[in-house]
């Protein structure tokens, strides 16, 4: 569990982060969202003390991070950034094994770990181990960057716009993969993004920041249905709101009794996918794999914030 308590950072006379407090439960993903200059990156960098807080403290599993030497603290926390920051003069394997080697793992241990991670990220170890970073595609570089951050099996992973440099198609895949790997490893993840879509896709909790202040911190459905301020609703974008809301819930949750014609959709598909399928095929009800149906009416009800509030 990560507890951020009254964290403040002042540069000169301006506070770039003002008295922010929030808690991230173990194994959850928290997305810090905001425009540039909102203080979200500074907040992230105070967690691993790349920036020292002016006031306040960070507790990781109850232990105050200020009591640990910064470089030793950082070796316990995974860190991945935009543009991946791979060392261009080191091979993929050397890059990934950076933290294990700093921690003094034996050669056998970190070699095995490199291969394990490459397989986890669907890169054939024999093929990729000895490549230099410039011999990889953008998506591969990004995956190696995340693999490097995970190398020493940290319980906490910090990511600053990790998908910022990827094109939309690869980005969607990378987000999905990250989500899967995070679930599999049970890592607590704090991710900084300026993209509300990404925050909604990945976050169990979303923290919206503006001008150094935390405006709202809650699950995506709450952010979407009851934005705390006009800034938060602007950030969500009113046009896409119903679709984002639908994308949060799987079909399985609103299955009704009944029969319907046509192709089935999977239980784990989102309501958004179901709505799209209804509109595209001109049907008002869809059969769900394993029995039951979803109706257009129920989808419509789920897309409105009033329905959520009543739950």
């Amino acid at each position: 569990m990560i507890e951020i308590q009254n964290l403040t950072r002042i540069y000169g006379t301006t506070a770039v982060v003002k008295d922010v407090s929030l808690t991230v439960e173990t194994g959850q993903i928290a997305a810090l969202v905001g425009t540039s200059g909102s203080g979200k990156t500074t907040l992230l960098r105070m967690i691993n003390r790349l920036v020292e807080p002016s006031a306040g403290r960070v507790l990781i599993d109850g232990k105050d991070t200020a009591e640990i030497e910064p470089h030793l603290l950082r070796r316990q926390i995974g860190y991945a950034i935009q543009g991946h920051g791979l060392f261009p003069h080191r091979t993929v394997a050397q890059n990934i094994s950076t933290v294990p080697r700093l921690l003094g793992w034996t050669q056998d241990q970190h070699r095995a770990r490199v291969d394990e991670l490459l397989e986890l990220f669907q890169m054939e170890p024999a093929d990729f181990r000895d490549r230099m970073p410039h011999e990889l595609s953008g998506g591969q570089q990004q995956r190696v960057g995340v693999a490097r951050a995970l190398a020493a099996r940290p319980d906490l992973l910090l990511m600053d716009e990790p998908f910022g440099a990827l094109d939309p198609v690869i980005r969607a895949k990378a987000q999905q993969d990250l989500r899967d790997i995070q679930r599999q490893l049970g890592t607590t993840l704090i991710i900084v993004t300026h993209d509300m879509e990404e925050a909604v896709t990945l976050g169990d909790r979303i923290a919206v920041m503006d001008k150094g202040e935390l405006l709202q911190y809650g699950p995506p459905s709450e952010i979407l249905t009851t934005p705390a301020t006009s800034f938060v609703s602007d950030l969500i974008g009113t046009g896409d709101r119903p679709f984002r809301l639908l994308s949060l819930t799987p079909v399985a949750e609103i299955i009704a009794e009944g029969q319907a014609e046509g192709a089935e959709i999977p239980r784990e598909a989102s309501l958004r996918d179901a709505l799209a399928e209804c509109l595209w095929s001109g049907r008002d009800r869809l059969p769900v794999e394993g029995g039951g149906i979803v109706t257009l009416d129920s989808l419509r009800a789920q897309a409105a914030p009033t329905a959520r509030a009543a739950e």
């Binding site: 790349l50 470089h71 950082r74 860190y79 920051g85 950076t98 700093l102």
Partner: peptide
């Protein structure tokens, strides 16, 4: 590249390690 230096610090290298292992090479 500033990102390279940032990553080196973020992964827990000390200042001398960053200098010797990353910046100078």
């Amino acid at each position: 590249n500033p990102a390279t230096r940032e990553a080196a610090a973020g992964l827990g290298m000390t200042r001398p390690q960053i200098l010797v292992q990353v910046l100078i090479p």
